[in-house]
């Protein structure tokens, strides 16, 4: 019975091909340092899931953002857990992505034929930092408000186009409802979309070229 169901599905989905091409691949001998990429992917998914839960209650407006977070922390069942995981997950994701990058740098895995994988990886690292920066403002408390004030000021110190960048980030000369809306949009739509797309290409390249081996004296 199950065999028949599987065969029916396999005919239509190509499960056997998927298994052969994605899972049953040979790999060089690895160790625990090789798990950092998948750990970053896991954190990205976890941030996505907890983030989606948070948007159920979070309101990106100066009048309600702070209170809605307060409600998530004290009113919603297990809201504190979801927010706690999202908060600490952000920290851990930056750490894991950074160490992942260091590992690739030290073993020179970025060299032929994986140059593009590295380039996209740097993009993923910068996007992760961008997620941290935009997410920091959303609780709309003193800490986030003033950190973003300074952060956008720094972005605005670019010669010639600094003023434009500052206004584009803030949606005006000062932090306001527009800034919050903008950061929210960037945090839940723009940056995650870019991240997901680049992660897709990153994964494709890893499957295409295989995980790199740890270098020995021959390399």
């Amino acid at each position: 019975m199950w065999k028949k169901v599987y065969e029916w599905l396999d005919e239509r989905l190509g499960l056997n091909d998927l298994y052969k091409n994605l899972l049953d691949r040979p790999e060089p001998k690895g160790n625990w340092w090789n798990t950092l990429g998948s750990a970053a992917l896991f954190l990205f998914i976890l941030q996505g899931v907890t983030g989606i839960f948070l948007t159920v209650y979070y309101t990106p407006s100066p009048d309600h953002a702070y209170d809605s977070i307060n409600y998530i922390m004290n009113g919603v069942a297990f809201g504190w857990l979801i927010r706690g995981i999202h908060h600490w997950g952000a920290t851990l994701m930056v750490v894991v992505v950074f160490i992942h990058m260091l590992r690739v740098f030290v073993t020179a895995s970025f060299k032929y034929p994986r140059e593009l994988t590295w380039l996209i990886g740097i993009g993923l690292f910068l996007l992760t930092l961008g997620m941290g920066f935009t997410g920091y403002l959303l609780p709309w408390n003193q800490q986030s408000y003033w950190a973003t004030t300074v952060g956008t000021q720094i972005a605005g110190s670019v010669p010639f186009i600094g003023d434009f960048i500052l206004k584009a980030l803030r949606g005006g000369p000062d932090l306001s409802a527009l800034t919050l809306q903008r950061f929210f949009s960037a945090h839940i739509w723009m940056l995650p979309a870019a991240l997901a797309g680049l992660i897709g290409v990153h994964l494709y390249l890893i499957i295409k070229h295989g995980e790199s081996n740890f270098p020995s004296k021959e390399d």
Binding site: D24, R25, G30, G210, E211, N213
Partner: peptide, 13 residues
Amino acid sequence: ELNRGERFWPDSI
């Protein structure tokens, strides 16, 4: 290296 390596599934996963 691949020939004397491991399988993605289940070793790495």
